[in-house]
Amino acid sequence: MKIIVCVKQVPDAKDVRLDPKTNTLAREGVQSIMNPYDQHALEEAVRLKDELGAEVTVLTMGPPQAEDVLRQSIACGADHGVLVSDRAFAGADTWATSYTLAQAIDFLGGADLVLCGKQAIDGDTAQVGPGLAMRLDMPFITCIQKVREADASGLVAERMMDDGYDVVAVDYPVLLTVVKDLNTPRVPSLKGKMRAKKAQFQVLSAADIGADPSLIGLAGSPTQVVRVFPPKPRGERTVLTGDMDEQVSELARRLNAYLQ
């Protein structure tokens, strides 16, 4: 069984700043981490590997320093890491990114199971997973909160919904995007860290994966960021005090005043 986990290196959310000139995220001097949702996707892949026996490949698109998340993945139990890296990929939106990742997965010979985090905490679009599945012509289930059972031919999983969850049974190949309820990512082991230290990663360029230059990077990205700005602070908030009757009358009084 072949599992591919797509991960993204993102700025640590504890330390987010905007570049006032370009209105994009200031990445210089900001600590990078593996997108937290992707950590859960990776954990599930390693858990399935422990249970069923599988080959886990971690795939990331990014600059050379994105190798850090591949190294972290090896420490957490992944078998291989692949870095899709080329200056031509720069400026990719979710459309171009999902195309690029799909090309890379095809180049790697496909997979039975592709796992992605629900979304990345920098862009928060939640589009790459589904987009990637469409490009791979693979069924997908988003927001997986639990994999109930899995074997060599398919799995049964819970999809988180607003009012509960769906239980979905699916055969491979399939792409899942996952939420944080799925599992608790393990602490990387010492032996894993030793393996990670020595790990070598396959680096794929646009030419390697046979990417159409018009579909990658900025050129292949229909999204244009017009302006990024911090949201306006919320208005003043008042906490009502007193016993329940007093609070309700006060609330009714204020609502009436507002309605008139």
């Binding site: 393990r186 602490v187 082991s189 010492l190 894993g192």
Partner: peptide, 11 residues
């Protein structure tokens, strides 16, 4: 068990 998984007992 998590410490075991992280190889601390192996030290």
């Amino acid at each position: 068990n998590e410490m075991a998984q992280a190889d601390l007992f192996a030290v």
